[in-house]
C-alpha cells in the first residue's frame, strides 16, 4: 500500500493541491467576503513595493506635467477642477437636503443626522484580473477604517471596503458584478438596487414598470445601509427599457465617477 502511494506521490500531491484550491474557492464563494489569513499574509508583503512604485510614478507624472509641460497652469487647473467637483457635490447634497426638508417640514423630532468624517487615501493597486473591479488603497485598520465603509470622490460613490489589513484595504467598485447597493432616484424618489456590470456601467434592478424613471435622472444612495451616507451621487440614467418582459424595467446607469482616472479617494468614517 505504502509503495503504491509512494509511486503515485506526484499524482496525490497534485490532487491535494486541486482539492485545496477548490475548497478555498467554494468557501470564499459561500462567505462572499474578501480577506482571510492568506490575504493578511500576502498583501502586507506585496503592498509596500507597489505603494513605492505608485508614488514614484505619480511624482514623475506631477513633475512632468506640472513643471516641464505647463508651468503653473496645470496646478491651477487641478485646483479649479477640485473646487468645481467640490461645488458639484455640495450642490447635489443641498438639493437632496432641500427635497428632504420639504417632505419632512411638518414632522417634529426629526432624527438628527450623524456627522461623517472622511479619510483621504491613495490608490496603490488595481485588480490584476480583468474580470473583477477592485482597488487597493493605502489606508487600513490603523487609520480607523472598517469593513463595509463607503469610498467616494468629490464626484460620487466609488464603492465599499470588502477586505482590510493594518495599512491597506481592498475596495469593491460599484461597477463590479458582485456589488449591489440600495439607491433612490433623486427626482421621483423611486427605490431600487444598483448592480455592477463590469464594463464601466451599472444596472438599476427591481424597479417596477410603474415607477417614473427618465434618461438623465440622477441616482443617489438611499442611506438605508447606515454605513453609507444618504444622498451620495452614484450616477445618471442613460437608458430605460420598459417594454422588456417581466415586472421590472431595464435601467442602465452611467456611474458619476470615471474609474479609469481615479488616483485618490475618500473613505467615509461614521
Amino acid at each position: 500500500m505504502l509503495q503504491f502511494l509512494l509511486k503515485r506521490k506526484s499524482l496525490i500531491f497534485l490532487a491535494v493541491l486541486f482539492l485545496v484550491s477548490l475548497t478555498l474557492l467554494a468557501r470564499d464563494v459561500e462567505k462572499r467576503e474578501g480577506g482571510g489569513f492568506i490575504d493578511d499574509l500576502i498583501v502586507p508583503i506585496l503592498a509596500p513595493p507597489l505603494q513605492l512604485s505608485t508614488a514614484a510614478v505619480h511624482k514623475i507624472q506631477l513633475l512632468w506635467l506640472g513643471y516641464f509641460n505647463l508651468i503653473g497652469a496645470r496646478s491651477e487647473a487641478v485646483m479649479l477642477q477640485k473646487r468645481g467637483a467640490e461645488l458639484q457635490r455640495e450642490n447635489q447634497l443641498l438639493q437632496e437636503t432641500a427635497l428632504e426638508n420639504r417632505r419632512l417640514r411638518e414632522l417634529l423630532g426629526f432624527k438628527k443626522k450623524l456627522p461623517y468624517r472622511f479619510i483621504p487615501a491613495e490608490i496603490i493597486g488595481r485588480d490584476p484580473s480583468s474580470w473583477f473591479r477592485t482597488l487597493l488603497i493605502d489606508k487600513g485598520t490603523d487609520n480607523g477604517i472598517r469593513r463595509g465603509a463607503a469610498v467616494m470622490t468629490a464626484r460620487g460613490l466609488v464603492g465599499k471596503i470588502i477586505a482590510i489589513q493594518k495599512t491597506t484595504a481592498k475596495v469593491l467598485l460599484i461597477i463590479d458584478r458582485n456589488s449591489a447597493l440600495d439607491i433612490l432616484v433623486q427626482r421621483s424618489r423611486a427605490k431600487g438596487i444598483i448592480e455592477g456590470r463590469t464594463e464601466e456601467r451599472c444596472e438599476l434592478c427591481f424597479v417596477s414598470k410603474n415607477e417614473d424613471i427618465q434618461t438623465g435622472d440622477v441616482i443617489v444612495t438611499s442611506g438605508l445601509d447606515e454605513i453609507i451616507p444618504k444622498g451620495l451621487a452614484v450616477g445618471a440614467v442613460v437608458n430605460v427599457v420598459r417594454n422588456s418582459p417581466g415586472f421590472f424595467q431595464q435601467v442602465e446607469v452611467k456611474p458619476a465617477v470615471d474609474f479609469s482616472k481615479l488616483e485618490e479617494v475618500l473613505v467615509v468614517l461614521p
Binding site: A26, D28, I42, V43, S129, F132, D176, N178
Partner: peptide, 8 residues
C-alpha cells in the same frame, strides 16, 4: 489576494 474574485 489582490483581486476581487474568490481567493482560490
Amino acid at each position: 489576494a489582490f483581486s476581487g474574485g474568490p481567493l482560490g
